[in-house]
Design a protein around this nucleic acid. Structure first.
Lengths: 102, 102
DNA sequence: ATGATAAATCGAGATATCTCGATATATGAA
DNA sequence: TTCATATATCGAGATATCTCGATTTATCAT
């Protein structure tokens, strides 16, 4: 996790909204039966919800992943993204330590 | 305080550094005797420490102020900036509420 | 008034980000 | 193998940010 990349990733309302959506799987359509046991949400569902182009969402997810805020797992032709709660909490703590007065 | 403006203001390492410096007045040279009772740090001191141009620092402080993270007070020809601790804490709380899982 | 100092504003070139459509890659199905 | 689907990558135009030097504004001292 890199605080500069993390803040840059957060510096966009849609990317923050995606992080919020990913807090709850029920913000998206049900998974396909063959994905029922998998964690995370596929890019297509995120794209539909965000209503931006496929390439934009793919690159957004790449930024969030590169910042360490989400992790991805490929299953067949799908890539599933989910929050990295530990990394997100660590990033927030680091930012708070830096920015808040003790 | 506006979370979009605040994150944008934080999305720059020098501006974050300035916020850190402003946590402790002793990060800067002593105030002039006639300013001894005033709170905050003048733009010139911040500029010297950050080693960027006067106009850049003036505009950085404007961004931080516009984001609500600092407040300014003019005294004679000097403008003194200081952290708005309440607003900074509120901003961090709002960001945490948005980004952290409950 | 004049001149000096501090800060804010302006205008601009360089760089980065946003967002798209088109194309490439990977996988699964027929 | 061929086709369809999901995602990633590429290239580009529009917009925003960074940072500067020059100028303007505000204030103080002479």
């Amino acid at each position: 996790m890199n605080i500069d990349k993390a803040i840059a990733a957060l510096n966009n309302p849609v990317r923050r909204q995606i992080l919020v959506w990913l807090r709850d799987r029920s913000n998206f359509p049900p998974a396909l039966p063959e994905h029922a046991d998998l964690d995370g949400v596929c890019v297509g569902y995120i794209q539909a919800k965000a209503d931006l182009s496929q390439s934009t969402i793919s690159s957004y997810m790449g930024l969030l992943k590169d910042a360490g805020l989400v992790v991805s797992a490929r299953h067949g032709q799908w890539t599933f993204y989910r929050r990295d709660e530990t990394a997100i909490a660590a990033m927030m703590k680091q930012l708070a330590d830096e920015v808040l007065s003790p």
